[in-house]
Computed example of a mutant assay.
Amino acid sequence: MIKRWMTGLTFALVAATAAHAEVREGTDYKRLATPQPVAQAGKAEVIEFFWYGCPHCYKVEPYVESWAAKLPKDVNFRRVHVMWPGRSDMEGHAKLFATLQQMGIEAKYQQAVFDAVQRDGIELRREGDLYPWIQKQGIDVAKFKAIYTGFSTSAAIGKLSDLTNTYKIDGVPTFVVNGKYVTSPGMIGREDGTITKVIDELIAKDKAGAKPAAKAKK
């Protein structure tokens, strides 16, 4: 996990000794100090907080992509590129994400951006490298540039910063379920598909808790 004031962190992986039959508070997840409303009423919500420059985010992203592709219609999954104050190294990546998001194609190119940054070492925070890469992806470069350099993107980065602060995100990758529960690979000690299983169990847990108690039989 990448912590707020660090660019690198030794990540300790802890072998799991038992399957997650039931998620455990304090071990698999924690409760958000101040619960937040979901974006779409009537739907379960999962928010992924990440950074394109985070190798741990990159490692779990294929599992997240596979999981997201199979989500039922009553689950709203959204991504938020983390933006911490004083972290100029994040701003270029956040700006790229905000632009793709405004174009409605951030989900389509999520893995491609990660691959470019983490695998191929392309410096997408530099316009001289970014625009040729955008063109190679088949994205309308003129449209991309107009949004990338526009006021709306500056405002969008501000919103990313606000969300990072509102949810008190101090490390990535981090997942928030229904505005209540926070989990991460760092908490569960695994950088694999286990994280999506924990998320599913938190959704089920919250759904079960929302159901009215059954009336006792007379």
Rank of each mutant, 00 (worst) to 15 (best):
I2Y: 14
K3Y: 13
K3Q: 12
M6C: 13
L9S: 08
A12C: 06
V14T: 12
T17Y: 06
A19H: 11
E25W: 13
G26K: 15
T27K: 15
D28P: 14
D28G: 13
K30W: 13
R31P: 08
A33H: 07
T34A: 14
T34W: 13
P37D: 11
V38G: 05
V38W: 11
K43I: 00
A44Q: 01
V46E: 03
I47M: 09
I47R: 10
F49A: 05
F49R: 05
F50T: 06
Y52S: 01
G53Q: 10
C54W: 04
P55E: 09
H56S: 14
Y58W: 08
K59A: 02
V60S: 02
P62H: 03
P62C: 01
V64D: 05
V64Y: 07
E65A: 11
E65V: 03
A68I: 04
A69D: 07
K70T: 05
P72I: 00
K73H: 03
D74G: 06
V75Y: 02
R78W: 03
R78Y: 02
M83D: 03
W84D: 03
G86Y: 02
G86A: 02
S88C: 05
M90I: 08
E91P: 01
G92S: 12
H93R: 10
A94M: 01
L96E: 05
F97C: 07
A98L: 09
T99F: 11
L100W: 09
M103T: 03
I105L: 14
E106I: 03
K108R: 15
K108Y: 10
Y109R: 15
Q110K: 00
A112P: 02
V113H: 01
F114V: 02
D115G: 08
V117M: 05
R119V: 07
R119L: 13
E123N: 14
E123F: 12
L124V: 11
R125I: 10
R126H: 10
L130K: 12
Y131V: 06
P132E: 13
I134C: 01
I134Y: 04
Q137W: 07
I139H: 08
K145Q: 11
A146P: 00
I147W: 06
F151E: 09
S152Q: 15
S152P: 14
S161G: 06
L163W: 02
T174Y: 05
F175W: 08
V176A: 06
G179I: 06
Y181C: 15
S184E: 10
I188S: 01
I188L: 13
G193I: 06
T194C: 04
K197E: 03
V198P: 00
I199H: 09
I199S: 06
D200E: 10
I203H: 11
D206Y: 12
K207Y: 10
A208W: 07
A210I: 14
P212A: 03
K218E: 01
